[in-house]
Design a protein around this nucleic acid. Structure first.
Lengths: 237, 237
DNA sequence: CGACCACTTGAACTATCTCAAGGACCGTGG
DNA sequence: CCACGGTCCTTGAGATAGTTCAAGTGGTCG
């Protein structure tokens, strides 16, 4: 077993060897042979912040950066319905009935595959199908968490919950009692569009959390928290 | 091809023959042999309105009735994060991180299977895995639609959108221009918990839609619409 | 330096909530 | 049959969280 692992390891394509997505992302499901096949069809590219990522039927590993997903009402009101942080996986087998736009919030690096390859592999590999399902269920759970936040939390709880989410994505293994600081990959407008608030309210609530001593605002985009646990108390759930 | 279909048809378990879920629900993916295997392990039962459906590791087809899914904040605030209408499919392979409660809103009939059987079949049948994924993606799209509604719609648009959703689930094939009437399977409290409003606001907005002439309130729980198209205009999207 | 952009802060406004009262319906028990 | 209490819903009046409008700060870039 250990030996077989080693052999496989040796055959892993060079481009995949250092790739984060092999551990936590989609590619963890593949063996060396499958990775080699995928690597042949994959293409790596980087896109600058602000670029819209067209829904062109490819699947991608998000190697670095942050992507937002938005739904728009007809008169221009906007709601961010989700984020992708590295090493998430983007793309889906079936079209959404109402369009959802994906846009890079930061510079983003992607490793993309044609849809057909993943779809075929999902047919052949139950564990890949299972992984895709698990991934989608996670997104569903997150969407439902935010439904509860949007429907039932106060502005202050929404902002705290948002900061906690970013902190968790910055360092998933962070100790709950120790301080942490991170850059917000979003403008106030994006935060407002995510939390269902106005930018003024977001700004005011951030100021309030600062005067509370719950957060420090280092540099508009850079926040530091005394601890995850402390902000968690403000989230209302 | 037609002949083979007939042979399969003949072997379909009696209990499945008249079942709605065979057409639109999960069981459409199975052939007669598979249905026979499933039917042996399945159990049909009915539960009265108000019953909590425990997350006991079974999967179920919802044969009739309506189920709500709720998330609660610690201080008792409640948000409904989704509904299941017949012939939806309930149950999931992986635990949610935060608990979600399912409760029957009306009397409900279920056809349940042990998780292990479905999970095994999903491993053996790529088209079942695909159906489960498609189903989950649909739920995700719906959750995101409601995120946009909760975050960005006015109270009046929320109520209109809710009525439209119920109307669509009552008769998915309904002509957009012709009148339709239906029973609300929810109390005002449930509607409020879904839309992130108070019951008073829900009541007032319903009254307003009635004086607008957009809806008729026949009997508190029974609503009739002049047309789907008309209510659609009030939804804001 | 000046213009611009993202952000903050203040003050007035408003959509929605809260609190309170009353109506309609329903089952229960006399 | 009616009286009773309970639940669900409606409506009104006042309170408030969050918005809107407006002014001002600070940083960045040409």
């Amino acid at each position: 077993m250990a030996a077989r692992q080693d052999v496989q390891q040796a055959d892993v394509p060079a481009i995949c060897k250092s790739c984060e997505a092999r551990q936590d992302g989609l590619c963890g499901a593949f063996n060396a042979r499958q990775l080699a096949e995928l690597a042949k069809a994959s293409s790596r590219h980087e896109v600058p912040a602000g670029t819209e990522l067209p829904d062109d039927g490819t699947y991608s590993n998000l190697l670095s950066g942050v992507v937002k997903l938005t739904r728009n009402l007809s008169d221009g009101r906007q709601q961010i319905v989700g984020f992708h942080f590295a090493p998430d996986f983007l793309g889906r087998p079936f079209e959404a009935k109402k369009p959802i736009r994906a846009e890079a919030l930061t510079n983003v690096a992607l490793c993309s595959f044609p849809r057909a390859i993943i779809d075929r592999m999902a047919n052949e590999m139950p564990e890949l199908a299972r992984l895709l399902l698990k991934h989608t269920l996670n997104e569903l759970d997150e969407a439902r968490d935010w439904m509860a936040a949007l429907g039932r939390k106060t502005a202050s709880e929404k902002v705290a919950s948002f900061l906690l989410m970013v902190a968790r994505n910055t360092d998933p293994a962070h100790h709950p009692a120790s301080p942490i600081s991170f850059d917000l990959p979003l403008t106030r407008t994006d935060i407002a569009d995510f939390l269902g608030l106005t930018i003024e309210t977001v700004s005011r609530e951030l100021s309030r959390l600062r005067s509370d001593g719950t957060i420090r605002i280092v540099n508009k985009r850079q926040i530091s928290l005394a601890s995850m646990a402390q902000i968690e108390e403000r989230c209302g759930d």
